[in-house]
Design a protein around this nucleic acid. Sequence first.
DNA 1: CGCAGTCTTGAGACAGATCAACTCACGTGG
DNA 2: CCACGTGAGTTGATCTGTCTCAAGACTGCG
Lengths: 250, 250
Amino acid sequence: MATISPPSADTGIAAFRGTLPVETRDQPTADRLCAIGTAVHLAKGEQLTPDPRDDRLVYIASGCAKLVAPASLGAGAGLPIHQVLAFHFGGDLISVLRQSDGDFRLVALSDCELVIFPADRFLDLAQADPAVLRAVLTRSLQALHRSRTRMMQMGHKSAGARIADFLVSMAERLADCTAGACVFSLPMSRRDIGDSLGLTIETVSRQLTELREAGLVATEGRSKVCLCDVAALARIAGRPAAGTVKTHQI
Amino acid sequence: MATISPPSADTGIAAFRGTLPVETRDQPTADRLCAIGTAVHLAKGEQLTPDPRDDRLVYIASGCAKLVAPASLGAGAGLPIHQVLAFHFGGDLISVLRQSDGDFRLVALSDCELVIFPADRFLDLAQADPAVLRAVLTRSLQALHRSRTRMMQMGHKSAGARIADFLVSMAERLADCTAGACVFSLPMSRRDIGDSLGLTIETVSRQLTELREAGLVATEGRSKVCLCDVAALARIAGRPAAGTVKTHQI
DNA sequence: CGCAGTCTTGAGACAGATCAACTCACGTGG
DNA sequence: CCACGTGAGTTGATCTGTCTCAAGACTGCG
């Protein structure tokens, strides 16, 4: 699991440098930050076990992954009810807390290039360059906002609205599309979708069928979807129309 | 609404200064931060309308408040289905985004002393003192973690588990109690509880009755509750036992 | 080509929402 | 200080949406 990439795979670290604020990209601080990053390759299905003691920041250079919270519950039910907390794609910088703070894991949905930073050392270095620290803070506030918005939806929304919202949000992130029609491949299974939305696979499937019959989506094979009218889906999802925050996730 | 407090009410600002990292509390940066803060008094039921254009950081010196997302939905239903995103208490520092980023409002559940900062100016000043910036970042990452944990629960938990979780979490924050028995007053109505948990008031009421009949809680009047066995409630809530992160919310 | 696992579809069960009284706490004014 | 009224809270009956259990169909792999 999680093989350390050969030196040639420093493309991940280079990609990370590109996300730093322009004015600090060529400063010594940038070099020091890159120096403490570990490039890692994760094959599809592999997972990144959290460090038992230290928080981490993980930059996804390429590929996509899900952040899951295993089992958790309750009366030793036995079934590993993985809740999916978020999906992440290339360019995201995410914070994975140490294992003792709730055992969240990053699982690759496709082959991934990651860069892993120990959170405390990263922040120590970033303190030398407040612009970096501020950029990280801004991202985390945006992530919080996203998470709250999502939570709000989980609260009281029907299965249909959740699926529509999921599709719209994937259209934004995977196809950079907020209206009209678009086609893309969903990298995650029906189970993952259900687990992230608090629904069963059966309900996910039924809702997709309903949208298909309504002529709003078409599917091909297991993963390819075509959203015929993103705006209509956004309406079903009960979204506050346009003007979504640019979609960075930490 | 939201009367500016008289100069005598600078206790709010003094309280804010007390939450800064020890090493910077007496630095000039601390003075400058306090200088851009506006002390505000909110009477019970009043709300803080977000600034249309600028993000804000709000420090709650005393009192308690709820963060709500109005209406949002959908087919002009008319009913103002306020979703409660979070409850906040004295000592919390919370981020309220500008109105255009989703119209979240802070509503006082009791009389409140607040200090309001324009987020950008606050962060500009904080850049001069990275320790402050880092403290804010740490808080926001904790808030994100809390929000995700909550979201996970919203996902697939029964009404009973949600109510139990809510009570345990209030015991922690209002009575600083994580086991045994404790008594406190809930500052929010049944409707607020339901809106924060994605349940109706009827269901909230029924679940409380059930817990009462099980001998786990007792109630007196509208707001006073007595949790007879917090650990048992935590078990019903499906909590990962002990070791909760210290409860700061941003 | 055939197998294994994913996805779809159907029938029945159950939790929580909804609609509708009813009760009670708390603040008000006599 | 007590009677009263209003709105919060409780309780009951019914209804809907989603989960559960159980086949069946398809995709994609070896």
